[in-house]
């Protein structure tokens, strides 16, 4: 009993970590657009669509702890990871000009920030989505044992 409670607590912490990453990502994206004034491009909006709901959905599976939350949150984080990957390839120039989804307005290939010479906004997004995805899968595997 005692050890299973402890196990559940550590699984809960994994979900909490996902929630923290999602919250920081949401606030960070709002900081870029609302405080620093960067206009989000179309791909950024698609990634936001996947990231923002996580902040609200994950707590629903944390109180009380429910491992099924992974089934609801994982599609969002997986799709987000894929869009971020596409965005990264676009910025890096691996995807040719003609497939670019945004012609008018803000081009998705424009690099708004570049910290330490390689950290761009789509990279931050991709890392967040990837870590969330890995942690969610881990939670599910541990909880279904």
């Amino acid at each position: 009993m005692n050890s299973s409670t402890r196990e559940q607590d550590s699984n809960w912490m994994l979900l909490f970590a996902c929630w923290m990453i999602a919250s920081v990502s949401v606030l960070g994206s709002l900081f870029f657009s609302e405080v620093m004034g960067f206009q989000p491009c179309v791909l950024c909006w698609y990634q936001r669509i996947c990231m923002y709901p996580l902040v609200l959905i994950l707590p629903a599976g944390m109180f009380p702890f429910d491992r099924n939350i992974v089934r609801y949150a994982l599609p969002l984080s997986l799709i987000g990871t894929l869009i971020a990957l596409f965005h990264l390839l676009l910025v890096a120039g691996y995807i040719p000009e003609s497939i670019k989804p945004c012609v008018q307005g803000i081009p998705c290939s424009e690099v708004q920030i570049e910290w330490f010479g390689f950290v761009t906004i789509p990279l931050l997004s991709g890392v967040s989505f990837l870590v969330i995805t890995v942690l969610l899968i881990l939670t599910h595997r541990r909880a279904s044992k």
Binding site: W12, F16, W19, M20, S23, P59, M62, F63
Partner: peptide, 10 residues
């Protein structure tokens, strides 16, 4: 305690 952690973090 978990609830407090989430509220505090938010």
């Amino acid at each position: 305690k978990q609830k407090h952690l989430v509220i505090f973090s938010a």
